[in-house]
């Protein structure tokens, strides 16, 4: 699903956020990316979402060489990828329903179908009763569940999560992890970046450890 070859990201001050990274994540896998703060985990996910470009090396995701995508193709590619970030990334002036239905809406999916899908994923995360609430009316855990619902609604082949439990207490964290595991059992490849070793131990999956931009351990 994800293959990188000698991938490097160099920031302006001569700082290597990633250095010569060659990683493979198989289709349907659940993988943790860990390491201390500043190790390069977020940078790697940003490269996968094409928020930034690598300095060297290349990335192939689901058969797409990311360096070859046009602007239109990038947006198309992103529609096939779910993301869950520490800061939720919900549009503040849109309701929960509108946040989830945003892409289907602009793509012209019939309204009834949009609603059915939104209701289904919200029910799955247990928030079907908050459909018309705005993000700032929700707790952090609820906002993260909405973000997960949005990610799943597009039936992505790959789900990227960057410190998805970073703002949540341990009970809620485990709940979120269980949702991610459930998504994975449906066939979606999941890559979770976290520095929370305790959580990794509880979930127990393949773990790639980075330090100063290099892979230091695969377990």
């Amino acid at each position: 699903m994800i293959e990188t070859h000698h991938l490097s990201k160099l920031y302006s001050r001569g700082l290597h956020a990633l250095r010569d990274l060659t990683i493979t994540v198989a289709k349907g896998e659940f993988v943790f990316l860990t390491g201390p703060s500043g190790a390069g985990k977020s940078t790697f996910l940003r490269l996968l979402l094409l928020q930034e470009r690598p300095s060297e090396g290349d990335i192939v995701v689901n058969g797409h060489d990311l360096s070859k995508l046009s602007r239109r193709e990038i947006q198309e590619y992103r529609r096939g990828i779910g993301f869950v970030f520490q800061d939720f990334k919900l549009i503040p002036n849109r309701t929960v329903l509108q946040n989830i239905s945003f892409v289907p809406e602009v793509l012209g999916v019939p309204v009834a179908q949009q609603r059915r899908k939104a209701f289904q994923v919200l029910k799955w995360v247990g928030l079907q009763h908050r459909m018309s609430a705005y993000p700032h009316d929700l707790s952090g855990g609820e906002q993260q569940r909405v973000a997960i619902a949005r990610a799943v609604a597009s039936e992505p082949v790959l789900l990227l999560a960057d410190e998805p439990t970073g703002n949540l207490d341990p009970d809620l964290s485990l709940e979120i992890m269980n949702l991610l595991r459930e998504i994975n059992s449906g066939g979606t490849t999941v890559l979770v970046a976290t520095h929370d070793r305790e959580l990794i131990r509880l979930v127990g999956r393949r773990t790639i450890t980075l330090d100063q931009g290099r892979v230091v351990e695969v377990a």
């Binding site: 928020q51 239109r72 947006q75 992103r78 990334k89 919900l90 892409v103 949005r150």
Partner: peptide
Amino acid sequence: RDELEIMQLVGSPIAF
């Protein structure tokens, strides 16, 4: 800015 970043991340077509 934040809203636009989210729209891009979810793959909204550029025209939108």
